[in-house]
Write a protein that binds this DNA or RNA. Structure first.
Length: 306
RNA sequence: ACGGGUGUAGCUCAAUUGGUAGAGUAGUGGUCUCCAAAACCAUUGGUUGUGGGUUCGAUUCCUACCACCCGUG
């Protein structure tokens, strides 16, 4: 049985600090499960907080942060693959892997052991699909069998990719799943929704006054198109709208703040869903201090090791 | 102080000639195995500022008061 400790929680709940301190105490390394911290140069908006990885004078090694250029379309498949590479590496050196992050699907992909086939781009297929209407694409996707999920048909990009995957899996049945099954011991930091909202708002005010706007401007100056940046949502979307003059500061702040609140809510929905599926999450009250949180984690950890 | 205006869901606003209130948004719940900080679905909120009057019936008409806004002093 493989082993892994996971620290999850909604945004602005202090996951990184807990994970870093824990890792430093148990000779561990952090593997990030954050869909945006993978991008270089996107630091403040994603809450990378690299300085937090130093605890008690020593720096805890981390993985899957700053691994691709902004503008690149990273995805859950690549995350899953890279996670296992990092995981193997950490374990091979006798260190304890600690997954830390908030992206629901990324976390679930590892914890629930999603089975992904490596499906290459099929230019020929894509060319053929180009002329079809959305409805025809949906019909085609359904012809491969029952839909994997309904979100596949919500937009054309996913629709095409879903067909590409279905087509590939039809031709390459029963691919061996060479990735090891990982059993994760999961901890979640939990606050009242209202408290999370307050923390998010305070953090946003701080970030906007401490370099977030400059960071987005640098990304734009570095050659990223506004629309690419908009795609990353939240901070990058709304600050871009501010910089390009499409939105006044107050409106930007209000809408962005709300969007992050909604994001925190969606994260909680993900975790609830995972729990309903049978994933055990040990919830820790976010209001207790860090030492006490560590004590809770170590206590449960000891219980599982004995 | 005088003149005018506005008070309806947390917020912004609707409601034909009076028939006991609807939208958007926020909030809440959910969907989810290749862009997931995405995309989509569902849904809870109201003594219509307060008191009185007219009326079978008032958010709508009348009246007093309260609050806020604009103008003039």
């Amino acid at each position: 049985m493989e082993h892994l400790i996971t620290i999850l929680g909604a945004t602005a709940t202090g996951k990184t600090r807990l994970a870093v301190e824990l890792a430093s105490l148990i000779d561990g390394e952090i593997i990030s499960a954050d869909s945006r911290q993978v991008y270089k140069g996107m630091d403040i908006g994603t809450g990378k907080d690299i300085e937090e990885y130093t605890f008690d004078g020593k720096t805890v090694p981390y993985h899957l942060i700053d691994i691709v250029e902004p503008g690149y379309e990273f995805n859950v498949f690549e995350f899953h693959r890279e996670f296992h590479v990092a995981y193997k590496d950490v374990v091979s050196r006798g260190k304890m892997p600690v997954m830390c992050g908030g992206s629901g699907m990324y976390l679930d992909a590892v914890i629930s052991g999603y089975k992904f086939n490596k499906v290459p781009l099929n230019e020929f297929l894509r060319k053929n699909l180009e002329d079809l209407s959305d409805d025809e694409l949906v019909k085609k996707l359904k012809s491969y069998g029952p839909l994997h999920n309904i979100t596949d048909i919500s937009d054309r990009h996913r629709l095409v990719r879903a067909i590409e995957i279905a087509e590939f899996e039809k031709k390459n049945e029963a691919l061996p799943n060479e990735l090891p099954t990982i059993h994760s011991l999961n901890f979640g930091i939990r606050f009242e929704r209202e408290t999370i909202r307050r923390r998010v708002t305070e953090r946003l005010e701080y970030r906007l006054e401490n370099g977030l706007i400059e960071e987005v401007r640098d990304l734009l100056d570095g050659g990223l198109k506004a629309e690419q940046l908009m795609f990353y949502g939240l901070e990058y979307k709304y600050v871009t709208l501010l910089i390009t003059g499409q939105m006044e500061y107050d409106e930007m702040f209000t809408l962005l703040n709300t969007a992050i609140h909604q994001y925190a809510k969606k994260q909680m929905t993900w975790y609830r869903k995972m729990e309903k599926k049978g994933v055990k999450i040990h919830w820790i009250d976010g209001n207790i201090n860090l030492d006490n949180k560590i004590a809770v984690v170590l206590g449960i950890l000891r219980h599982y090791q004995s």
